[in-house]
Amino acid sequence: MNKLIISGSPHVQTDESVKKIMYGVVLSLVPAMLVSFYFFGLAAILITLTAVVSCMAFEFVIQKYLIKGPLTILDGSAIITGILLAFNVPSSLPLWMVVIGSAVAIGMGKMTFGGLGKNPFNPALVGRVFLMISFPVEMTNWPKPIAFSTQLTDVVTGPTPLAVMKEGVSQGEHVADILPEVPGYVNLLLGNMGGSIGEISALAIILGGLYMLVRKIITWQIPAAYLGSVVVFSGVFWLIDPTQYVDPLFHLITGGLMLGAIYMATDMVTSPMSHRGQLVFGIGCGVLTMVIRLFGAYPEGVSFAILIMNAFVPLINKGFKPKRFGEEVKHG
Protein backbone atom coordinates (compact mmCIF):
# COMPACT_ATOMS: atom_id res chain seq x y z
CA MET A 1 0.00 0.00 0.00
CA ASN A 2 2.81 2.42 -0.73
CA LYS A 3 1.36 4.70 -3.39
CA LEU A 4 3.22 7.81 -2.30
CA ILE A 5 5.92 8.53 -4.85
CA ILE A 6 8.58 11.03 -3.91
CA SER A 7 10.57 12.50 -6.78
CA GLY A 8 12.26 15.71 -7.79
CA SER A 9 10.74 18.05 -10.35
CA PRO A 10 9.75 18.04 -13.21
CA HIS A 11 6.69 16.01 -12.31
CA VAL A 12 4.82 16.36 -15.59
CA GLN A 13 6.68 14.62 -18.37
CA THR A 14 5.95 14.13 -22.05
CA ASP A 15 6.59 10.98 -23.96
CA GLU A 16 8.70 12.92 -26.50
CA SER A 17 12.18 11.62 -27.10
CA VAL A 18 15.00 12.41 -29.48
CA LYS A 19 14.01 9.37 -31.51
CA LYS A 20 10.32 10.34 -31.76
CA ILE A 21 11.11 13.91 -32.82
CA MET A 22 13.71 12.83 -35.36
CA TYR A 23 11.46 10.28 -37.01
CA GLY A 24 8.68 12.90 -37.00
CA VAL A 25 10.97 15.16 -39.02
CA VAL A 26 11.81 12.29 -41.38
CA LEU A 27 8.10 11.65 -41.90
CA SER A 28 7.48 15.33 -42.65
CA LEU A 29 10.19 15.23 -45.31
CA VAL A 30 8.36 12.54 -47.29
CA PRO A 31 6.25 14.89 -49.50
CA ALA A 32 9.30 16.90 -50.59
CA MET A 33 11.16 13.64 -51.19
CA LEU A 34 8.37 12.27 -53.39
CA VAL A 35 8.34 15.48 -55.46
CA SER A 36 12.10 15.25 -55.93
CA PHE A 37 11.84 11.61 -57.02
CA TYR A 38 9.09 12.58 -59.45
CA PHE A 39 11.08 15.37 -61.10
CA PHE A 40 14.66 14.08 -60.85
CA GLY A 41 13.94 10.36 -60.95
CA LEU A 42 16.44 7.66 -60.19
CA ALA A 43 19.30 10.13 -59.72
CA ALA A 44 17.53 11.79 -56.78
CA ILE A 45 16.76 8.41 -55.16
CA LEU A 46 20.39 7.31 -55.55
CA ILE A 47 21.79 10.52 -54.06
CA THR A 48 19.36 10.50 -51.12
CA LEU A 49 20.16 6.86 -50.36
CA THR A 50 23.90 7.44 -50.66
CA ALA A 51 23.76 10.45 -48.36
CA VAL A 52 21.67 8.71 -45.69
CA VAL A 53 23.71 5.51 -45.72
CA SER A 54 27.08 7.28 -45.69
CA CYS A 55 25.98 9.69 -42.95
CA MET A 56 24.95 6.77 -40.76
CA ALA A 57 28.14 4.89 -41.61
CA PHE A 58 30.38 7.84 -40.72
CA GLU A 59 28.45 8.42 -37.49
CA PHE A 60 28.89 4.75 -36.58
CA VAL A 61 32.61 4.66 -37.37
CA ILE A 62 33.40 7.91 -35.54
CA GLN A 63 31.32 7.03 -32.48
CA LYS A 64 32.69 3.52 -32.24
CA TYR A 65 36.38 4.04 -33.02
CA LEU A 66 37.21 7.71 -32.38
CA ILE A 67 34.89 8.89 -29.63
CA LYS A 68 34.35 5.39 -28.21
CA GLY A 69 31.05 6.53 -26.73
CA PRO A 70 27.52 5.17 -26.88
CA LEU A 71 26.17 4.48 -30.36
CA THR A 72 23.28 6.68 -31.45
CA ILE A 73 23.06 5.97 -35.15
CA LEU A 74 19.48 4.78 -34.84
CA ASP A 75 18.15 7.94 -33.17
CA GLY A 76 17.39 9.33 -36.61
CA SER A 77 19.52 12.46 -36.51
CA ALA A 78 22.05 11.08 -38.99
CA ILE A 79 19.18 10.08 -41.28
CA ILE A 80 17.88 13.66 -41.24
CA THR A 81 21.35 15.07 -41.88
CA GLY A 82 21.68 12.69 -44.82
CA ILE A 83 18.29 13.58 -46.30
CA LEU A 84 18.82 17.32 -45.85
CA LEU A 85 22.29 17.13 -47.36
CA ALA A 86 20.90 15.27 -50.37
CA PHE A 87 18.11 17.85 -50.62
CA ASN A 88 20.75 20.58 -50.89
CA VAL A 89 22.74 19.28 -53.84
CA PRO A 90 21.92 19.08 -57.55
CA SER A 91 20.77 15.68 -58.77
CA SER A 92 23.67 15.47 -61.22
CA LEU A 93 26.30 15.53 -58.45
CA PRO A 94 28.69 12.54 -58.62
CA LEU A 95 28.00 10.08 -55.79
CA TRP A 96 31.55 10.22 -54.42
CA MET A 97 31.07 13.92 -53.81
CA VAL A 98 27.91 13.12 -51.87
CA VAL A 99 29.99 10.75 -49.71
CA ILE A 100 32.57 13.50 -49.10
CA GLY A 101 29.76 15.88 -48.17
CA SER A 102 28.37 13.33 -45.72
CA ALA A 103 31.80 12.84 -44.17
CA VAL A 104 32.17 16.59 -43.70
CA ALA A 105 28.61 17.01 -42.43
CA ILE A 106 28.87 14.26 -39.81
CA GLY A 107 32.61 14.40 -39.10
CA MET A 108 33.29 18.12 -39.21
CA GLY A 109 29.84 19.54 -38.58
CA LYS A 110 28.68 17.25 -35.80
CA MET A 111 31.17 14.79 -34.29
CA THR A 112 34.07 17.23 -33.99
CA PHE A 113 31.98 19.14 -31.49
CA GLY A 114 30.93 16.04 -29.60
CA GLY A 115 27.83 14.77 -31.39
CA LEU A 116 24.14 15.56 -31.41
CA GLY A 117 23.20 18.48 -29.19
CA LYS A 118 26.66 19.99 -29.07
CA ASN A 119 27.16 21.12 -32.66
CA PRO A 120 26.91 24.90 -33.12
CA PHE A 121 26.31 24.67 -36.88
CA ASN A 122 23.71 22.74 -38.84
CA PRO A 123 25.64 19.64 -40.02
CA ALA A 124 23.85 19.30 -43.37
CA LEU A 125 24.59 22.93 -44.22
CA VAL A 126 28.24 22.53 -43.22
CA GLY A 127 28.42 19.64 -45.69
CA ARG A 128 26.65 21.60 -48.38
CA VAL A 129 28.77 24.75 -48.06
CA PHE A 130 31.93 22.62 -48.01
CA LEU A 131 30.84 21.00 -51.30
CA MET A 132 29.77 24.38 -52.69
CA ILE A 133 33.22 25.90 -52.09
CA SER A 134 35.16 22.75 -53.00
CA PHE A 135 33.35 21.80 -56.20
CA PRO A 136 31.78 25.02 -57.50
CA VAL A 137 31.27 23.68 -61.02
CA GLU A 138 29.51 20.44 -60.10
CA MET A 139 27.48 22.14 -57.37
CA THR A 140 25.97 24.72 -59.73
CA ASN A 141 25.13 22.34 -62.53
CA TRP A 142 21.35 22.10 -62.25
CA PRO A 143 19.51 19.41 -64.23
CA LYS A 144 16.13 20.49 -65.57
CA PRO A 145 13.25 18.64 -63.91
CA ILE A 146 11.59 16.00 -66.08
CA ALA A 147 8.47 14.24 -64.85
CA PHE A 148 8.97 10.48 -64.26
CA SER A 149 12.51 10.68 -65.53
CA THR A 150 14.53 7.49 -65.31
CA GLN A 151 17.67 8.88 -66.86
CA LEU A 152 20.84 8.87 -64.85
CA THR A 153 23.11 10.77 -67.20
CA ASP A 154 22.94 13.16 -70.13
CA VAL A 155 20.27 15.31 -68.57
CA VAL A 156 19.55 18.80 -69.82
CA THR A 157 20.90 21.38 -67.43
CA GLY A 158 20.03 25.01 -66.93
CA PRO A 159 20.39 27.76 -64.35
CA THR A 160 18.04 28.13 -61.40
CA PRO A 161 15.36 30.84 -61.59
CA LEU A 162 17.32 32.93 -59.09
CA ALA A 163 20.47 32.67 -61.22
CA VAL A 164 18.53 33.64 -64.35
CA MET A 165 17.13 36.64 -62.51
CA LYS A 166 20.51 37.72 -61.12
CA GLU A 167 22.25 37.32 -64.47
CA GLY A 168 19.53 39.23 -66.33
CA VAL A 169 19.35 42.13 -63.90
CA SER A 170 23.14 42.46 -63.80
CA GLN A 171 23.11 42.85 -67.58
CA GLY A 172 20.63 45.69 -67.34
CA GLU A 173 17.52 43.80 -68.44
CA HIS A 174 14.17 44.61 -66.86
CA VAL A 175 12.53 42.17 -64.49
CA ALA A 176 9.42 42.03 -66.68
CA ASP A 177 11.56 40.84 -69.63
CA ILE A 178 13.29 38.16 -67.56
CA LEU A 179 10.21 36.66 -65.91
CA PRO A 180 9.03 34.81 -69.08
CA GLU A 181 12.41 33.02 -69.15
CA VAL A 182 11.73 31.28 -65.82
CA PRO A 183 8.90 28.85 -65.00
CA GLY A 184 5.59 30.44 -63.99
CA TYR A 185 4.57 30.91 -60.37
CA VAL A 186 2.39 27.77 -60.28
CA ASN A 187 5.31 25.67 -61.52
CA LEU A 188 7.65 27.32 -59.03
CA LEU A 189 5.23 26.49 -56.23
CA LEU A 190 4.85 22.86 -57.32
CA GLY A 191 8.55 22.38 -57.92
CA ASN A 192 8.90 22.33 -61.68
CA MET A 193 12.12 24.35 -61.69
CA GLY A 194 15.86 23.79 -61.75
CA GLY A 195 17.50 23.55 -58.37
CA SER A 196 18.75 21.31 -55.62
CA ILE A 197 16.99 17.96 -55.17
CA GLY A 198 14.73 18.85 -52.26
CA GLU A 199 14.31 22.59 -52.49
CA ILE A 200 12.23 22.74 -55.64
CA SER A 201 8.68 22.29 -54.34
CA ALA A 202 7.67 25.04 -51.93
CA LEU A 203 4.25 23.42 -51.53
CA ALA A 204 5.56 20.02 -50.40
CA ILE A 205 7.94 21.67 -47.93
CA ILE A 206 5.12 23.82 -46.49
CA LEU A 207 3.05 20.64 -46.07
CA GLY A 208 5.88 19.02 -44.12
CA GLY A 209 6.31 22.21 -42.11
CA LEU A 210 2.63 22.25 -41.13
CA TYR A 211 2.91 18.65 -39.97
CA MET A 212 5.90 19.55 -37.80
CA LEU A 213 4.02 22.57 -36.40
CA VAL A 214 1.07 20.39 -35.42
CA ARG A 215 3.40 17.81 -33.86
CA LYS A 216 5.10 20.75 -32.06
CA ILE A 217 8.49 19.71 -33.42
CA ILE A 218 9.12 23.27 -34.57
CA THR A 219 7.73 26.58 -33.38
CA TRP A 220 6.24 29.15 -35.76
CA GLN A 221 8.63 31.90 -34.70
CA ILE A 222 11.69 31.10 -36.84
CA PRO A 223 9.95 30.35 -40.19
CA ALA A 224 7.57 33.28 -39.73
CA ALA A 225 10.32 35.74 -38.86
CA TYR A 226 12.57 34.38 -41.61
CA LEU A 227 9.96 34.43 -44.40
CA GLY A 228 8.42 37.67 -43.11
CA SER A 229 11.69 39.56 -43.14
CA VAL A 230 12.44 38.26 -46.66
CA VAL A 231 9.03 39.55 -47.80
CA VAL A 232 9.57 42.95 -46.17
CA PHE A 233 13.16 43.32 -47.40
CA SER A 234 12.44 42.29 -51.00
CA GLY A 235 9.11 44.14 -50.90
CA VAL A 236 10.75 47.46 -50.06
CA PHE A 237 13.17 47.13 -52.98
CA TRP A 238 10.39 45.93 -55.29
CA LEU A 239 8.27 48.97 -54.44
CA ILE A 240 11.22 51.32 -55.00
CA ASP A 241 12.13 49.92 -58.42
CA PRO A 242 10.05 47.05 -59.87
CA THR A 243 12.19 47.02 -63.03
CA GLN A 244 15.33 46.05 -61.15
CA TYR A 245 13.96 44.02 -58.23
CA VAL A 246 11.60 41.09 -58.57
CA ASP A 247 8.49 40.79 -56.38
CA PRO A 248 8.59 39.15 -52.91
CA LEU A 249 6.55 36.10 -54.01
CA PHE A 250 9.30 35.13 -56.47
CA HIS A 251 11.89 35.31 -53.70
CA LEU A 252 9.69 33.25 -51.39
CA ILE A 253 9.12 30.27 -53.66
CA THR A 254 12.43 30.04 -55.53
CA GLY A 255 15.77 28.75 -54.37
CA GLY A 256 16.28 27.06 -51.04
CA LEU A 257 14.39 29.58 -48.94
CA MET A 258 11.45 27.36 -47.93
CA LEU A 259 13.69 24.38 -47.20
CA GLY A 260 16.04 26.61 -45.22
CA ALA A 261 13.36 28.46 -43.26
CA ILE A 262 11.37 25.36 -42.33
CA TYR A 263 13.98 22.60 -41.95
CA MET A 264 17.45 24.15 -41.60
CA ALA A 265 16.92 27.27 -39.49
CA THR A 266 14.56 25.47 -37.10
CA ASP A 267 17.06 22.76 -36.15
CA MET A 268 16.57 22.47 -32.37
CA VAL A 269 20.27 22.22 -31.63
CA THR A 270 21.44 25.21 -33.63
CA SER A 271 18.62 27.72 -33.05
CA PRO A 272 17.94 29.98 -30.03
CA MET A 273 16.00 28.62 -27.07
CA SER A 274 13.60 31.46 -26.25
CA HIS A 275 10.78 32.55 -28.54
CA ARG A 276 11.95 36.14 -28.69
CA GLY A 277 15.45 34.92 -29.52
CA GLN A 278 14.01 32.79 -32.31
CA LEU A 279 12.32 35.86 -33.80
CA VAL A 280 15.65 37.73 -33.80
CA PHE A 281 17.37 34.68 -35.31
CA GLY A 282 14.76 34.40 -38.07
CA ILE A 283 14.96 38.10 -38.94
CA GLY A 284 18.77 37.89 -39.07
CA CYS A 285 18.55 34.91 -41.45
CA GLY A 286 16.04 36.71 -43.66
CA VAL A 287 17.99 39.94 -43.92
CA LEU A 288 21.29 38.13 -44.61
CA THR A 289 19.65 35.92 -47.24
CA MET A 290 18.27 38.93 -49.09
CA VAL A 291 21.53 40.90 -48.82
CA ILE A 292 23.37 37.97 -50.42
CA ARG A 293 20.68 37.40 -53.05
CA LEU A 294 20.46 41.05 -54.10
CA PHE A 295 24.00 42.32 -53.58
CA GLY A 296 26.25 39.27 -53.14
CA ALA A 297 28.27 37.28 -55.63
CA TYR A 298 26.12 34.14 -55.24
CA PRO A 299 22.55 34.04 -56.57
CA GLU A 300 21.42 32.17 -53.43
CA GLY A 301 22.36 32.91 -49.84
CA VAL A 302 20.14 30.75 -47.63
CA SER A 303 22.82 28.33 -46.47
CA PHE A 304 25.37 31.05 -45.76
CA ALA A 305 22.78 33.16 -43.93
CA ILE A 306 21.72 30.30 -41.66
CA LEU A 307 25.31 29.27 -40.90
CA ILE A 308 26.24 32.87 -40.05
CA MET A 309 23.23 33.20 -37.75
CA ASN A 310 24.07 29.80 -36.18
CA ALA A 311 27.27 31.44 -34.99
CA PHE A 312 25.22 34.16 -33.28
CA VAL A 313 22.98 31.71 -31.39
CA PRO A 314 24.99 31.65 -28.12
CA LEU A 315 24.94 35.46 -28.12
CA ILE A 316 21.19 35.55 -28.82
CA ASN A 317 20.60 33.00 -26.06
CA LYS A 318 22.49 35.22 -23.66
CA GLY A 319 20.56 38.34 -24.61
CA PHE A 320 17.07 36.84 -24.73
CA LYS A 321 16.67 34.64 -21.71
CA PRO A 322 13.12 33.42 -21.08
CA LYS A 323 11.74 34.75 -17.79
CA ARG A 324 11.53 32.09 -15.13
CA PHE A 325 8.29 31.77 -13.21
CA GLY A 326 8.43 34.04 -10.20
CA GLU A 327 11.55 35.84 -11.37
CA GLU A 328 9.91 39.25 -11.45
CA VAL A 329 9.27 40.47 -7.94
CA LYS A 330 6.38 42.89 -7.57
CA HIS A 331 6.96 45.64 -5.11
CA GLY A 332 4.31 47.35 -3.03
Binding site: I100, M108, T112, F130, I133, S134, F135, P136
Partner: peptide, 21 residues
Protein backbone atom coordinates in the same frame (compact mmCIF):
# COMPACT_ATOMS: atom_id res chain seq x y z
CA UNK B 1 40.97 19.70 -59.44
CA UNK B 2 40.80 18.60 -55.85
CA UNK B 3 38.69 20.13 -53.12
CA UNK B 4 39.02 23.83 -53.77
CA UNK B 5 38.20 24.72 -50.18
CA UNK B 6 41.64 23.51 -49.05
CA UNK B 7 43.36 25.93 -51.40
CA UNK B 8 41.31 28.80 -49.96
CA UNK B 9 41.55 30.31 -46.50
CA UNK B 10 38.93 28.09 -44.76
CA UNK B 11 40.97 25.02 -45.65
CA UNK B 12 43.94 26.42 -43.73
CA UNK B 13 41.88 26.79 -40.56
CA UNK B 14 40.20 23.39 -40.98
CA UNK B 15 43.51 21.66 -41.69
CA UNK B 16 45.29 23.38 -38.79
CA UNK B 17 42.45 22.53 -36.41
CA UNK B 18 42.52 18.84 -37.22
CA UNK B 19 46.34 18.69 -37.12
CA UNK B 20 46.29 20.27 -33.64
CA UNK B 21 43.69 17.70 -32.59
Amino acid sequence: DGMLVFVLAPGAFIGLGYLIA
